[in-house]
Design a protein around this nucleic acid. Structure first.
Length: 518
DNA sequence: TTCCGACAGTGGGGTCGCAAT
DNA sequence: ATTGCGACCCCACTATCGGAA
């Protein structure tokens, strides 16, 4: 199949907001790819989902700043493009950057304007066609004539979409496709997409969200939420593999987790949990230390810092699949097979008990809690309503120092605001930026407001007179080398603009430092 | 007919390894 | 030795479509 066919489909998908219309376009091109063979289905399904088949190519947005003019006529096949990126992914060592740039120039030079747009989107991971993996799975189902649920489940269990698309579309009949999809089962050693949580502002709201209609939630699990990295651990005897949330295999980087899992009583296991670094007293170290330890490839270099695994779910044990078992059953098994590496929890129907657990774990330095429906199955890959996270929230009244022009649907509006705390000695100390929490109405208002406050216009936005106070919510403070105060906000978002408060009454950097000191 | 679940988009800070400077 | 880029760890929140109720 020609890349031009894929690019035309992507353009058509981007041109409509209707998901049904997007799906129809995807179905058409998937069917044509299937007629060309499984290799084309593999490539085309990846590209339509917004990804390259290579996890890392060494190319990013910066590498694409100067590229040749587009070709007038299409010539590239999907297979050509995949081979070109595969070759780039292999490049390493001195001179590789130049060779990669040359290879990219050759590829993009052979691509038409439409094809360049597609390739650029795939390289940067920002295709912006309004359809990614989820809609693609729906399209695969329709193209193969099978229920969407069957395709989705296969993809969750496979941990990827490409193989599922290939299997479903290679089948000559819907019956054969169903059979092919049923062959994707939970397999020890092959990661599944992790179940995700929704969020709620407090424990009471989380419990209300789990209630069925007018009936109260009944017994729920209140799990401790640890501030580390998500891990999915597969054990088959002495063979232990550790995967991240994005299903990256980090086994080689975390020998201490492998060793801990080998000490557990069950021989075949799939566990879901979190890994983090602890201090001598067993309290969690800052997330940045966990991130550093888990990103260091050479375990020898990591020194004394060590990751401790804690598990909150079990998906398989010694031949028994537990994905569809209620959480109640899974936890009973977890306590048998994963002690002492089990997340601390309470089971209760009493909102007061749940709230007390939240208070206690936060006091112990943990991130918060995850409230879970006691009888829900493990919904791989879903951000289902069965898990609801609750974290403490801090707020500050900060001053807007500058604003950046937005992109995409925010093009033409001033979007990303720079935030400063008041320095009692004079001026403001920048603590970070945020674009979150803004409605379209707020974006329109702030565009006008900050243009009026503009002191200077820059290519990226405007620097403003420091007069507008904004109430900011955030999860905590972290060490920063980027900002002058040595501190940065974590997960900052706008709550509201405060027109009742002058900048002279904004929160001070001293108050922020006091908060950081705990 | 209205409601709401699921998606995609819009970006944030920090960490590492690697190649170029 | 330092710098910049790419990849990936943690993410929150809003608008929208279309099926559920």
């Amino acid at each position: 199949m020609l890349l031009a066919d894929v690019a035309a489909a992507s353009t058509a998908v981007a041109a409509t907001r209707s998901r049904l219309a997007k799906r129809a376009v995807l179905v058409d091109v998937l069917r044509r790819a299937a007629a060309d063979g499984p290799q084309d289905v593999a490539i085309v399904s990846r590209y339509l989902g917004g990804e390259l088949r290579q996890r890392r190519t060494g190319l990013g947005w910066r590498s694409l700043t100067s590229l040749p003019e587009p070709a007038d006529t299409p010539s590239l096949t999907a297979a050509d493009v995949d081979a070109a990126f595969a070759a780039m992914a292999e490049l390493a060592g001195p001179g590789s950057a130049g060779a990669r740039t040359a290879a990219a120039a050759e590829l993009f030079g052979a691509a038409t304007q439409d094809e360049q747009r597609l390739l650029r989107g795939l390289v940067t991971g920002e295709l912006r066609q309004g359809a990614l993996d989820a809609l693609l799975l729906d399209a695969v189902a329709e193209a193969a004539g099978v229920p969407a649920g069957a395709v989705r489940r296969a993809a969750m269990l496979a941990g990827e979409t490409e193989a599922v698309a290939v299997a479903a579309l290679a089948a000559p009949t819907p019956e054969a496709a169903t059979e092919a999809l049923d062959a994707f089962t939970l397999t020890v050693g092959r990661p599944v997409r992790p179940m995700l949580a929704q969020s709620a502002p407090d424990v009471a709201t989380a419990l209300a969200g789990l209630a069925q209609g007018d009936a109260p939630a009944g017994e729920v699990v209140v799990d401790t939420k640890l501030d580390g990295i998500r891990i999915q651990v597969h054990r088959d005897g002495d063979d232990v593999r550790v995967y991240t949330r994005s299903l990256d295999d980090i086994t080689a980087r975390v020998p201490e987790i492998v060793a801990a899992v080998r000490l557990l009583p069950a021989q075949r296991l799939v566990l879901d949990g979190e890994a983090l670094t602890l201090d001598d007293a067993g309290r969690p170290r800052p997330f940045q230390e966990t991130a550093s330890r888990s990103a260091t490839r050479d375990a020898e270099l990591a020194g004394s810092a060590s990751l401790t695994p804690f598990f909150f779910d079990v998906l398989h044990v010694d031949g028994r699949d537990l994905l569809d078992a209620p959480l109640r059953e899974r936890l009973a098994v977890l306590d048998q097979v994963a002690a002492p590496h089990v997340v601390d929890r309470v089971v209760t129907a009493d909102p007061a008990v749940a709230a007390e657990h939240f208070r206690a774990v936060v006091a112990a330095g943990q991130e918060g809690v995850v409230v879970k429906a006691y009888d829900a199955p493990y919904e791989a890959g879903r951000r289902g309503a069965a898990w609801v996270k609750v974290k403490p929230r801090h707020t500050l009244d900060l001053v807007v120092l500058a604003v950046e022009w937005g992109s995409g649907r925010r093009a033409g509006t001033l979007s990303n605001i720079h935030l400063g705390a008041r320095d009692p000695a004079g001026g403001f100390v920048m603590l970070g930026k945020t674009f979150k929490g803004m409605t379209d109405e707020m974006l329109a208002w702030q565009t006008e407001r900050f243009l009026a406050l503009a002191q200077s216009r820059e290519p990226w936005g405007v620097v403003v007179r420091p007069e507008q106070v904004v109430e900011i919510a955030f999860d905590g403070l972290q060490r920063s080398t980027r900002y002058p105060g040595g501190l940065a906000l974590r997960f900052a978002r706008v709550l509201r603009y405060r027109d009742d408060k002058p900048a002279s009454e904004a929160d001070t950097i001293d108050a922020v430092r006091a908060l950081a000191a705990g």
